[in-house]
């Protein structure tokens, strides 16, 4: 009996461990920020992305096609924004992330503008999560895109957005 329950406990721990690994970076590392007064929090669920994909009304023509192409592979978007203590939050954030789990894609450091870091979690060629951290003088932004993320498509999006403005 003792062995059985031990095995069950082991199984439970493994399971808990594996699901933990599937969680997004914000849930994993920044959970305490979510209910923090200083942050604006936005969450968009997988269900919502399906709805957006099916939306028949075009809010704006050209960019929406390119955008839908990206959105259809998204499974979750989580955003945290704060306008207090941005620099401190940024430093804290970039130190918190386990770099064996998340790979640093790019760091941008700027004298006059924002500091930025992009991190990804991938499996083979597929990017499962993209995390963007921005810290400027007075704004801290943390965004986690979960799904199947095609970086090239995302990078190209800005062209179609620009045309439209």
């Amino acid at each position: 009996m003792r062995i059985v329950s031990f095995l069950m406990l082991l199984g439970f721990l493994c399971l808990a461990g594996s699901t933990q690994a599937q969680a997004d970076a914000i849930s994993t590392y920044f959970g305490q920020y979510v209910d923090d007064e200083r942050f604006t929090v936005v969450y968009i669920s997988p269900k919502m992305f399906q709805m957006i994909d099916k939306l028949s009304i075009d809010f704006d023509e050209e960019s929406s096609e390119a955008m839908k192409d990206v959105v259809k592979d998204l499974r979750g978007l989580r955003i945290l924004v704060a306008d207090e203590g941005a620099q401190g939050l940024y430093q804290e954030a970039i130190q918190k992330i386990n770099t064996t789990e998340y790979e640093l894609l790019m760091t941008v450091r700027n004298k006059s503008e924002d500091d930025m870091q992009f991190l990804i979690k991938d499996e083979g060629d597929i990017v499962n999560e993209l995390l963007m951290i921005i810290g400027s003088e007075d704004n801290f932004v943390l965004m986690s895109f979960v799904g199947n993320i095609d970086l090239e498509k995302v990078a190209k999006l800005s062209e179609s957005f620009e045309e439209q403005d």
Partner: peptide, 16 residues
């Protein structure tokens, strides 16, 4: 949701 997603992707894309 569309609006928030679009704004987020815009910021992401531009910064990338």
């Amino acid at each position: 949701a569309y609006k928030e997603t679009k704004a987020a992707l815009k910021l992401l894309s531009r910064n990338l």
